[in-house]
Structure formats: structure tokens, C-alpha cells
Lab assay of single mutants.
Amino acid sequence: MATKAVCVLKGDGPVQGIINFEQKESNGPVKVWGSIKGLTEGLHGFHVHEFGDNTAGCTSAGPHFNPLSRKHGGPKDEERHVGDLGNVTADKDGVADVSIEDSVISLSGDHCIIGRTLVVHEKADDLGKGGNEESTKTGNAGSRLACGVIGIAQ
């Protein structure tokens, strides 16, 4: 089992970053940390998408990683996509320092995120509470600013 993974985020604009993942036990939580720069100040949706395909930019990554066919939600919700990591918060300089621990994603097994795409979005994720159909699919997080395929790390 891989215990570490990394993702280099890039987009068409100024947004870029490096996100690290570490899972010490196969059924334990995954620590997610790193930094994203070039964002507007505020909240930005942060999700693992189904495919590791960036051939047409971030759009070819498909929908959120959702092997259990659930509705979109927040990272602490029972009803959520596996890939729903909530929001990252950018400061006035456009930098989001990421520090998350998640017990639904994994670096092995059915919820493995390796080979899938991590995406940072234009807007805040409403965590499935926006009151419309799009909220239950995407959290109304808007366009995909930057993305990268999650790969095994040393």
C-alpha cells in the first residue's frame, strides 16, 4: 500500500500549488496538507474528481469521485461524495494553506484517490446545502481553477 501521495495543481491562470497526502494505516485517516497560491481571497471548493484525465484541462477530470452514488455534502457529513473535501481558505495575498484530515478518502482500496484528479474551484462549496439540484452534485463551487493528478510519492 502506498502511504504517501502528492498532487501538483496547475491551471490556465495564476492558480498553482502542491498538496501532499499521507496515510499511516490502511483504514486510518489521510492527512492532506500543502499550499495553493494565486486564488482570490475567501473560500474555494476542494474536491477529488473521478478521473485522472487532464487532456482537456480540468474539465476532463469528470464529476466528483463518488463510488457510493451519494449526494454532495461537506467533509463531516454522512451523506457526501468520497471526493468531497470541503473548502480551502485563501488569505488576502491569495494563498491557501491547506491542513485537512479526512477519514473517507484513502490511498488504497475502494476509496483510493491515487490516479484521480484534485481540483480547486472558483467559488465556495455550499456543502450540499444550497437548496438546488446543482448543490447536491457540485456544491455550486463554480469553474475549475486548477487541477492535477494525484500520484504515489516516496
Rank of each mutant, 00 (worst) to 15 (best):
A56R: 11
S103Y: 09
E22V: 07
I19R: 00
H111F: 06
G131P: 09
E101Y: 05
E41G: 05
K31T: 11
K71Q: 08
E79C: 13
F51A: 08
I114F: 04
D12W: 05
A146G: 06
R70L: 14
H121Q: 09
N54M: 14
V8F: 14
S108V: 10
D97T: 12
E122Q: 06
S26M: 06
N66R: 05
I18A: 04
K4C: 11
N132S: 10
P67D: 14
K10A: 12
C58S: 13
F46M: 15
R116H: 09
D91A: 14
E133T: 09
K71T: 06
T3K: 15
K31R: 15
P75T: 08
E133Y: 13
N54E: 10
G86H: 01
N87S: 08
G34T: 00
C58E: 15
G57C: 14
I152G: 08
S135D: 06
Q23H: 09
C7Y: 01
P63D: 09
G13P: 14
G62V: 08
P14Q: 12
N132F: 14
S135V: 05
L118K: 01
D77Q: 08
F21L: 08
E122L: 07
T40Y: 03
A141I: 06
N66K: 07
K24V: 07
I100Y: 08
K92C: 09
H72I: 00
R144P: 15
P67T: 06
T59M: 06
G11K: 02
L85T: 02
G115M: 00
A61Q: 06
K37W: 13
G142E: 07
R80A: 03
T3A: 12
G109V: 04
V30W: 01
G128K: 06
D110F: 11
G74L: 06
K10M: 14
G62C: 14
L39P: 05
I18R: 07
H72D: 06
K76S: 12
N140S: 07
S60A: 13
N132G: 09
L118P: 10
K10C: 10
T136K: 11
S143D: 11
F65T: 08
A146P: 03
V120T: 02
V95H: 07
H64L: 05
E50G: 08
